[in-house]
C-alpha cells in the first residue's frame, strides 16, 4: 500500500468576536491507498475543521491554516492556488457532507448536477457524460435511473439524496473520499444502507475514505484505522482493533464505556466522562483531557504528553503510558478512583 495523504502538525485557528479559537492544534495523520481512516471525536474537537483543511476549504476570512503541511501525493494542499484546489476537489478528492439537502442545488435536476461535475473535470461529450451519470446512479443503488435522472432533489428522500451526493463525489473516480458525518442526519435503517454502499464502492474502486464521525458504532462497522481527536489534538490513533480492544488513552476508554453495549445481556450502569471539554479560546497548557480524567497526575496539568508508540500504527498521547507513572490498576486498588 502506498501513502496517499499525509498531514503534518496542522494548526487551524478561527478569529471570532471574543477572541481566537484554536480549533486544530497540531494534528498529524496519514492515509494509505484503499484504506478507511475514521476521525472520531465530539462536537468542537476539530474533526470537521481538519477535514475542511484537507479539502482546502477552511472558511475565509475567519479561519486560517496557521501551520503544517497537507501532502497529497507530492503537492501541499495548504500551498495550492484556489484554481488548483478546485481541480483537485471533484477530480481527485470527492466530498460527502452531513446534510444532503444543502449539498445539492435545489433548482437543478439531479442528472444535470452529476453531469456538470463530470464535464468540469473530464473531456467527454454530453452524451457520454450522461451515460456515465446514469451508471453512477446505478452504482449508488438508485433504481429507475432514467426517470430519476431528470428529477429535482426535493423529489428524493434523505437517504436517496445522500446516495446522489455520493454519486457526485464519485463522478471523477477520486482517489480519496472525505465523508463528514455522512450518516448522522439519516435514520438507522438508511444509515446501514449508506455504510454498506460506502464499503462496497471502496472494494470496487480501491479508493481511500476519511470518515469523520462521532459515532463509535459507525467506526466499528467500517473503519480500518482510527484517530481519536479531543480539543484539537489527536490523542490516540491505531487500527480499529487496537482502539476498541486495547485503548491506551483514558478518553478513548471513556468514550467506549459511555455507550451502552447491546451485545451484553445485563443492564449495567453507564460510565460517563464527567465535566465538559475545555474552552479552545484558551486551551490548557497540559493535557486537554486532564480536567476530566479520573487518573490525572500533576504532570498532566503542566505538560502536554508526548507520543507513546505501542505498535506500527498505535500511539497515544497520555502520561499514564510513561514508565514513571503508576499503573492504573494500582491506582484503582489504592482506592483513589471510581472508574472501573
Amino acid at each position: 500500500m502506498s501513502r496517499l495523504l499525509e498531514v503534518n502538525d496542522l494548526k487551524v485557528s478561527f478569529r471570532t468576536y471574543g477572541g481566537e479559537i484554536q480549533a486544530v492544534r497540531g494534528v498529524s495523520f496519514y492515509i494509505d491507498e484503499g484504506e478507511t481512516l475514521a476521525i472520531v471525536g465530539e462536537s468542537g474537537c476539530g474533526k470537521s475543521v481538519t477535514a475542511q483543511a484537507v479539502m482546502g476549504m477552511v472558511p475565509v476570512p475567519h479561519g486560517k491554516v496557521k501551520n503544517g503541511q497537507i501532502l497529497f501525493g507530492d503537492r501541499d494542499i495548504t500551498k495550492l492556488s484556489k484554481k488548483k484546489l478546485q481541480q483537485i476537489r471533484g477530480s481527485e478528492i470527492g466530498m460527502i457532507f452531513q446534510d444532503p439537502m444543502t449539498s445539492l442545488n435545489p433548482t437543478m435536476k439531479i442528472g444535470t448536477q452529476i453531469r456538470e461535475g463530470i464535464l468540469k473535470h473530464q473531456k467527454l461529450s454530453k452524451n457520454e457524460a450522461k451515460e456515465k451519470a446514469l451508471e453512477l446512479l446505478r452504482l449508488v443503488g438508485i433504481s429507475d435511473v432514467e426517470k430519476r435522472y431528470s428529477q429535482y432533489p426535493h423529489e428524493f428522500s434523505g437517504g436517496m439524496r445522500q446516495r446522489v451526493v455520493i454519486a457526485i463525489a464519485l463522478a471523477c473516480d477520486p482517489k480519496l473520499i472525505i465523508a463528514d458525518e455522512p450518516t448522522t442526519a439519516l435514520d438507522v435503517t438508511i444509515q446501514a444502507q449508506i455504510l454498506d454502499l460506502l464499503k462496497d464502492i471502496q472494494k470496487k474502486r480501491n479508493s481511500s475514505i476519511i470518515l469523520i464521525t462521532h459515532d463509535l458504532g459507525v467506526v466499528a462497522e467500517v473503519a480500518d484505522r482510527v484517530a481519536v481527536m479531543y480539543a484539537g489534538v489527536v490523542v490516540e490513533s491505531g487500527t480499529v482493533d487496537e482502539i476498541f480492544e486495547n485503548p491506551k488513552h483514558p478518553y478513548t476508554l471513556g468514550l467506549l464505556k459511555s455507550v451502552p453495549n447491546l451485545d451484553s445481556p445485563d443492564k449495567e450502569r453507564l460510565i460517563p466522562i464527567d465535566g465538559s471539554p475545555p474552552d479552545l479560546f484558551a486551551p490548557p497548557t497540559g493535557c486537554p483531557f486532564a480536567a476530566r480524567c479520573p487518573f490525572a497526575m500533576e504532570v498532566c496539568v503542566m505538560h502536554m504528553p508526548d507520543k507513546e508508540t505501542f505498535s506500527d500504527h498505535h500511539y497515544a498521547k497520555c502520561w499514564l503510558n510513561d514508565n514513571r507513572a503508576i499503573k492504573v490498576e494500582e491506582m484503582i486498588t489504592a482506592g483513589s478512583e471510581q472508574l472501573v
Binding site: 486532564a290 487518573f295 490525572a296 497526575m297 500533576e298 504532570v299 498532566c300 496539568v301 503542566m302 502520561w319 510513561d322 514513571r324 507513572a325 503508576i326 491506582m331 483513589s336
Partner: peptide
Amino acid sequence: TDALFRPAN
C-alpha cells in the same frame, strides 16, 4: 514515584 506523577491535586 516522581512527584510529578502523583495524582493531580
